[in-house]
């Protein structure tokens, strides 16, 4: 299949990409932009591990073609800690043991970084509802919920 050349803006940096139009955003981020923090868990939009922000809103990178992202700003997990300082949510996940194997974690961080901006005071029920879009096989979710609550009540 023929490749196309396009520019991708990721974490404020421009990347010149040459890829087949069918190449998924997950694969372009990981292989072409060398940002491997975005993980691939199911490739059919269920597990949420690949969640990134597109113009500030959470999206499943496995359901997008990279070429569709021309003119949009992508944010990945690599941009969340600033100058080596964890975001309040990352810090809370660390403090209350909200991650184990860590494979789903980036997707969860991205989901809630966006959600908490628009909804800074969610209830536990609302947090669980939002979190239900991300699968975690290790934690039973409780400490992820705790971490979000910790940020909410900070």
């Amino acid at each position: 299949m023929d490749t196309v050349d396009f520019e991708l803006s990721v974490n404020g940096e421009r990347h010149a990409v040459r890829a087949e139009p069918r190449k998924l955003l997950t694969d372009v981020l990981r292989e072409d932009c060398r940002l491997t923090g975005t993980h691939v868990g199911c490739e059919h939009g269920v597990c949420g591990a690949c969640t990134v922000l597109v113009d500030g809103r959470p999206a499943r990178a496995c359901l997008l073609y990279a070429v569709q992202m021309r003119g949009h700003e992508i944010t990945t997990i690599e941009a969340i800690a600033k100058d080596g300082v964890l975001s309040p949510l990352q810090q809370a996940l660390h403090e209350v043991h909200g991650l184990q194997c860590g494979f789903c974690t980036a997707g969860i961080v991205m989901t809630f970084e966006a959600y908490l901006k628009e909804n800074p005071r969610p209830t536990e029920e609302e947090i669980r509802d939002v979190l239900s879009g991300n699968l975690c096989r290790c934690t039973g979710y409780q400490n992820i919920v705790e971490a979000v609550l910790k940020v909410v009540h900070a």
Binding site: G37, T76, A81, L86, F103
Partner: peptide
Amino acid sequence: DRRLLTGNGRYVDD
């Protein structure tokens, strides 16, 4: 935690 929270883990495919 730190490496896993910041996208710096090294899983096989990384």
